Simulated assay, not measured.
Amino acid sequence: MLGALLVLVAVLAQCALAHTVDLHPNSEHCFFEDMHSGDEMTLTYQVSGGGHLDIDTWIKNPDGQTLFEQIRKDTGSYEFIADKDGRYTYCFSNEFSHVTDKTLSFNVHGVLYLTEDEGLIPAERELRDLANNIQMFKDEQQYLVMRERIHRNTAESTNSRVKWWSIMQTMLIVATCGFQIYFVKR
């Protein structure tokens, strides 16, 4: 029983993977997960930079049928339970953009399915729920960090533009005053 508990904790600790990918214009990145019937998988993603912060996303089962698809969205989440054994594919596409690179962060996490017959005791169930809640908290934290980064970049860009506009206005006022003084003295 203790061995099963340690295996469950080790599996849950390794189920969470965070990735950051740069999607170039007219490009697509696909990833694969080999799953067994009954395994759970959750995919969450967030575009944190580039253009209108939008990409295309889809997930396909081993037969090539589309399980999930979002077109030109900046964030998304999809959770599913595998209905058959095989390789599940999830792709991110920036093919509709011809100019702008996009920065994408995504998380893939899952839970191996254990039935009551396989010895899932209440403590293991509580551990699984706790691990899922921790992962949701981690995903939310990562989302907030990315949003803060986007807003900070926007604020710094606006600050730079205001600074240069103010310098340009000051130079224009000094030049106008100099011209007026020259014109009046003449």
Rank of each mutant, 00 (worst) to 15 (best):
M1I: 08
G3L: 10
A4P: 01
L5G: 06
L6E: 08
V7K: 05
V7Y: 05
L8N: 12
L8D: 11
V11F: 15
A13W: 02
Q14N: 08
A16G: 02
V21P: 10
D22Q: 14
H24P: 02
S27C: 03
E28K: 09
H29T: 14
F31N: 00
F31L: 07
F32K: 09
F32N: 14
H36M: 09
S37V: 02
G38Y: 08
D39G: 02
E40H: 06
E40F: 10
M41C: 11
T42L: 11
T42K: 12
T42R: 07
L43P: 01
Y45H: 11
Q46I: 09
V47K: 01
S48T: 07
S48D: 07
S48N: 04
S48A: 07
G49L: 06
H52A: 09
H52K: 13
I55C: 12
W58Y: 03
W58K: 02
K60C: 00
N61A: 05
P62E: 01
P62N: 03
Q65L: 12
T66G: 00
L67E: 04
Q70D: 07
I71E: 12
R72E: 14
K73R: 10
D74L: 04
G76Q: 04
G76V: 00
S77I: 11
S77G: 13
Y78T: 00
Y78G: 01
A82M: 04
A82W: 04
A82H: 06
A82G: 12
A82Q: 05
A82R: 08
D83T: 13
D83F: 06
D83Y: 10
K84R: 15
G86E: 13
G86I: 11
C91K: 02
E95V: 04
F96R: 10
F96Q: 09
S97V: 03
T100Q: 15
K102D: 09
T103W: 13
T103N: 13
S105H: 05
S105A: 05
N107R: 03
N107D: 04
G110C: 02
L114C: 02
L114I: 01
L114M: 03
L114N: 03
T115E: 02
E116G: 00
E118S: 04
E118N: 05
G119A: 05
G119D: 09
L120H: 00
I121R: 02
P122I: 04
P122N: 05
P122E: 01
P122D: 03
R125D: 06
E126V: 03
D129Q: 14
A131H: 10
A131M: 14
N132P: 00
N133G: 01
F137R: 06
K138Q: 10
K138F: 10
D139W: 05
Q142L: 08
Q142M: 13
Y143N: 06
V145C: 09
V145E: 15
R149K: 10
I150S: 10
I150D: 09
I150P: 12
H151P: 00
R152Y: 13
R152P: 03
S157H: 12
T158P: 07
N159H: 15
V162N: 08
W164N: 12
W165K: 06
I167N: 05
Q169L: 15
L172R: 07
L172A: 11
V174I: 13
V174S: 08
A175I: 03
T176L: 15
T176D: 07
C177I: 14
C177A: 13
G178I: 05
Q180A: 14
I181D: 03
Y182I: 08
V184G: 01
V184Q: 09
R186K: 09
